[in-house]
Amino acid sequence: MNTKTFTADELSQLTDIPKRTIRYYIQLGLVDRPIGETKAAHYVDTHLDQLLRVKKLTEAKVPLERIRQVMDGEAEAPPTSTRKPGSMEVKTHLHVMPGIEIQISAEEAGMSPEQIRMLLKEVMAATQRVMKKDNGES
């Protein structure tokens, strides 16, 4: 198994988090310690994922203690939607029928494309049931 490894400099550049802050997050236990010692120390995808998650939560103004609880699995992650003027986000529009459309931010909802397709099928089936009842059909 080839796992991509990163130096501290690469990890800092990829996450746009200063190395000093990364070390602080490691000290707080928000991010796992690097693999290896001193100059031979390196990081892997897990470290990158942890840092990106911490960054997302800190940008949403979640306190570090709460982030630690989330990272340890003790608490549920709070919503992190921090839309700012000029920000962009991708949304999926699901056309159910004329006049009915569902808008989903898959990233924010944490849904895979397959889960979105399943949701659409369920909503369409429910819509058909409601329409039949409204028309007096059973």
Rank of each mutant, 00 (worst) to 15 (best):
S105H: 07
S112G: 12
Q103R: 06
V130D: 08
G136M: 09
M118H: 10
I100A: 07
E101W: 02
G136L: 10
S105I: 00
I104V: 15
R129T: 04
E101S: 06
K132F: 04
Q115H: 12
I116L: 03
M118Y: 10
K121Y: 02
I116G: 05
V130I: 10
K132M: 10
A126I: 07
Q115V: 13
M124E: 15
A106C: 08
A106Q: 07
M131N: 02
A109F: 00
I104L: 10
E137F: 14
I102R: 01
V130Q: 11
Q103P: 00
D134L: 15
I100H: 03
I116S: 04
L120C: 07
V130F: 07
I100Y: 04
Q128M: 08
I102F: 02
V123D: 08
R117F: 04
L119T: 09
I116R: 02
E114H: 12
E137V: 11
A125Y: 11
S105Q: 03
K132Q: 14
S112N: 10
G110R: 04
S105G: 05
M111G: 01
M111N: 01
E114Q: 08
S105M: 00
M131K: 12
N135V: 00
Q103Y: 00
I102P: 03
N135F: 00
G136C: 08
E107A: 11
E137T: 06
N135K: 09
S105P: 00
V123K: 03
K121F: 09
A109I: 01
A125V: 11
E107G: 14
E137N: 07
I100R: 03
Q115W: 10
L120W: 01
V130W: 06
L119N: 07
R117M: 07
K121N: 12
E101I: 09
A106Y: 00
I100N: 03
N135W: 05
R129Y: 09
G136T: 02
R129E: 15
A106K: 04
M124Y: 01
L120K: 07
S105D: 09
S112L: 15
K132V: 09
Q115P: 12
M118R: 13
L120D: 09
R117Y: 05
M124D: 14
G110V: 12
L119M: 15
N135S: 01
N135Q: 10
S105N: 14
Q128W: 09
R129I: 02
I104N: 03
Q128A: 15
K132H: 01
A126V: 11
D134T: 00
Q115G: 14
A109V: 00
